[in-house]
Write a protein that binds this DNA or RNA. Structure first.
Length: 500
RNA sequence: UCCUCGGUAGCUCAAUGGUAGAGCAUGCGGCUGUUAACCGCAGGGUUGUAAGUUCGAGUCUUACCCGGGGAGCCA
């Protein structure tokens, strides 16, 4: 008898094997029980009848509650009807632990309820799929850099100062040395690493104490930050697009089943190959001002209104039939009503926002930073991530190098993911001239003394260098096609939540 | 910090100012191929908190608490 995982069942058709796991769901039909077993690698329907198992085995099967742990032995059989494609005809079943009444039922739940039970929620198929994709993404990130001669370079989490002097950071007392802060970026340390090792990447958790309450923000998130000596902005952009394409193509290769579980449209991801379109800030502003952008907003508006009307018509028609149909049909109607109400609420919000987006794009003032809606509109032009480069220096960090061809611009670039996911990468060529950097520090009213070590990097053999940061959770959300980063990390830290 | 939406059964949601409901979950009964199984029965409520208007408040008003979405900022 051999113990196997559900993901290995395809190699054991016809064999008698043992599965170990938890009861995901069950259906009982008098003299037959269907047990849906999950083991972390997948789910498998196990069929039990009084003839197939001992009297004790039959009693065991009947006693199982949702999430009870148990082991089953039986013969593996391919079955078209089964989720996952394989079923087991059970010959023996042992209970390990009967679960108390499990709070997360196979029906719908609200986000607060689920977040309070995140330690259990991660057992759900959807969450398992997301976390497995996250794992593949992180492995793809490390492989990409490792295969190209980058050295992993860990930056400290506790730092004595704010990197960019702008964001609000988590603060703590550090013995007799005064305040210390949780890092908001490993970048400055990464620059030191690049001067020592050539090409490095910092990979770790990052903290922001801003009160951002949106689907794109966590207070604790993971960021990977490559930093390369002898790279200019063009090299930086080329690396970023190869990097992102590599991540997406790796997930497509390794996690087809999980993407299917999430209902992700694969064809959208298959487009993600280099080269990515490059748009300068100046061009981006022109695009925002263009008639084409206004038209696209109008088209979206019309499509949203049409969908809204159709959904409401369906709701009305269902309500009219409600009293004449069978009970099972009523349940379908009830479920559909919730679905429609949610979608209509989404559409209503979109319809409220679109006119504002249109206005804001039309009236965008050259020199300002791109807002969230402006970024979204820009991504509508392309079927893959778009790189926006050469932003006004005023809206970017002090350490970014000015464009020699236009001193008002910084050699910065952001990569915006399609489908409204927005900024997943931010990077730049760094200022390598000591005097210019000193000027910037003064302009930004930053304390020079805490940056002395950083200035040393320019004093002792300064070279052109560049780097960028990629937000892991935003990347996971985009690739998975899910609408909130809180589902992309095992235990999300949000402004109103730090437990479990 | 600001804007906006919400809080009704364990869960997801209904309920013109007029007797608080449904589905799921739970318990019991039925059913040998179910796919969020189905059919029947049962138990289950201080409508977020406090005050106010009213003959009467889940519903209207005010304040507060908690949460969702968004702005700013950013990955």
């Amino acid at each position: 008898m051999v113990d196997v995982y559900i993901e290995e069942l395809d190699r054991h058709v016809g064999d008698e094997v043992t599965l170990k796991g938890w009861l995901y769901n069950s259906r009982e039909g008098g003299k037959i029980i269907f047990l849906i077993l999950r083991d972390g690698t997948g789910i498998c329907q196990c069929v039990v009848t009084p003839e197939s198992v001992s009297a004790q085995g039959w009693e065991n099967a009947k006693s199982l509650t949702q999430e009870s742990s148990f082991t089953v032995t039986g013969t593996v059989r391919a079955d078209e009807r089964a989720p996952g494609g394989y079923e087991m005809d059970v010959t023996a079943l042992d209970v390990v632990a009967i679960a108390e009444e499990y709070p997360i039922t196979p029906k719908e739940h609200g986000i607060e309820f689920l977040a309070d039970r995140r330690h259990l929620w991660i057992r759900s198929r959807r969450q398992v799929a997301i976390l497995r994709i996250r794992h593949s993404i992180i492995r793809a990130i490390r492989n990409f850099f490792d295969d190209r001669g980058f050295v992993l370079f860990d930056a400290p989490v506790l730092t004595p100062n704010a990197v960019e002097g702008t964001s609000t950071l988590f603060e703590t007392e550090y013995f007799k040395l005064g305040k210390a802060y949780l890092t908001q970026s490993g970048q400055l340390y990464g620059e030191a690493g690049a001067m020592a090792l050539g090409k490095i990447y910092v990979f770790g958790p990052t903290f922001r104490a801003e009160e951002s309450k949106t689907r794109r923000h966590l207070t604790e998130f993971w960021m990977v930050e490559p930093e390369m000596a002898w790279f200019d902005l063009d090299d930086d952009m080329k690396l970023a697009e190869d990097f992102i394409a590599h991540i997406v193509q790796t997930v497509l290769k390794e996690r087809k089943a999980e993407l299917a579980e999430l209902g992700r449209d694969i064809s959208v991801l298959e487009n993600i190959v280099p080269p990515f379109p490059r748009v300068s800030y100046d061009e981006a502003v022109e695009m925002l001002h263009s008639d084409r952008t206004a038209e696209m907003v109008d088209e979206k508006q019309a499509a949203a209104e049409k969908e809204r009307t159709e959904l409401l018509a369906e709701l009305e028609s269902n309500a009219a039939q409600y009293n004449q149909v069978k009970q099972w049909q009523r349940k379908k109607f009830d479920a559909r009503e919730i679905e429609i109400n949610n979608r209509v609420a989404e559409l209503d919000e979109l319809l409220r926002n679109l006119p504002k987006w249109k206005e804001s794009a039309r009236n965008f003032e050259h020199g300002g930073d791109l807002g969230g809606s402006d970024e979204t509109l820009l991504t509508w032009y392309f079927d893959r991530p778009v790189i926006v480069h050469r932003y006004p220096a005023g809206v970017k960090a002090f350490y970014m190098k000015r464009d020699p061809e236009d001193e008002s611009k910084a050699l910065a670039m952001d990569v915006l993911a399609p489908e409204g996911y927005g900024e997943i990468v931010g990077g730049s060529q760094r200022e390598d001239n000591l005097d210019f950097l000193l000027e910037r520090i003064e302009e930004h009213n930053l304390p020079q003394d805490v940056f002395e070590w950083f200035l040393d990097l320019r004093r002792y053999g300064s070279v052109p260098h560049s780097g960028f940061g990629l937000g892991v959770e935003r990347t996971v959300a985009w690739i998975c096609g899910i609408d909130h980063v809180r589902e992309t990390i095992p235990f999300p830290r949000l402004i109103h939540r730090n437990r479990p």
